[in-house]
């Protein structure tokens, strides 16, 4: 898992090409989720799958070494390891989902009441819809990505 000797050039090239496509697809799924197939959960799992692909093909430390340009951190021994960062992603997501729900209370509605705004005559788009549920969905996305990647990282490091 942590070695990158036994993956073929084909696999590594395909991973390089496919990774951004998957991530863009995931983001598209996240944003269109309210009206078309998609949503925070699917987008989150897809993103995690993309990073999982990098883990499988290039090894665990590649992400930190090559992409973030810092020495790889063994999980839990380091204060600022990558699992910490995944962990704060989870925290942020939970706070976003719950906090967004709590905003409704300030307006006198029940917890987690969601609203939708429609903007007419937006260039290119015509009618444009913004749902407060998107904030909630973003929270779901962050939690799912953070949690799955944490699991992948620590289980992979084992």
């Amino acid at each position: 898992m942590t070695t990158d000797h036994d993956t073929t050039v084909i696999a590594r090239t395909v991973a390089r090409v496919v990774f951004p496509i998957i991530v863009v697809t995931a983001i598209a799924l996240l944003l269109q989720g309210h009206n078309l197939p998609g949503g925070g959960f699917i987008a989150g799992t897809l993103t995690a799958a993309a990073v999982g692909l990098v883990y499988v093909i290039y090894g665990l430390d590649h992400l930190e070494q090559e992409l973030l340009g810092r020495p790889p951190s063994v999980p839990f021994t380091d204060e600022a390891g990558i699992t910490r960062e995944y962990g704060s992603l989870v925290t942020t997501g939970l706070a976003l989902a719950a906090g967004g729900g709590a905003v409704a209370i300030l307006f006198g509605d029940a917890f987690l009441t969601q609203a939708v705004w429609f903007f007419e005559h937006v260039p290119v788009y015509g009618e444009f819809e913004v749902a407060s549920a998107l904030a909630f969905d973003l929270g779901v996305y962050a939690v799912v990505v953070g949690a799955l990647l944490t699991i992948l990282a620590v289980v992979g490091a084992e």
Binding site: A97, L112, V116, E120, F136, D137, V140
Partner: peptide, 29 residues
Amino acid sequence: SFIIDSGGGHNIVNVILVDFRAFDTLGEI
């Protein structure tokens, strides 16, 4: 231009997850 009493989305599954049953989803995450 502003609605609050319906989901406002055509993807019913997603609207259930993030609006009607948001409390369940919060529990799940």
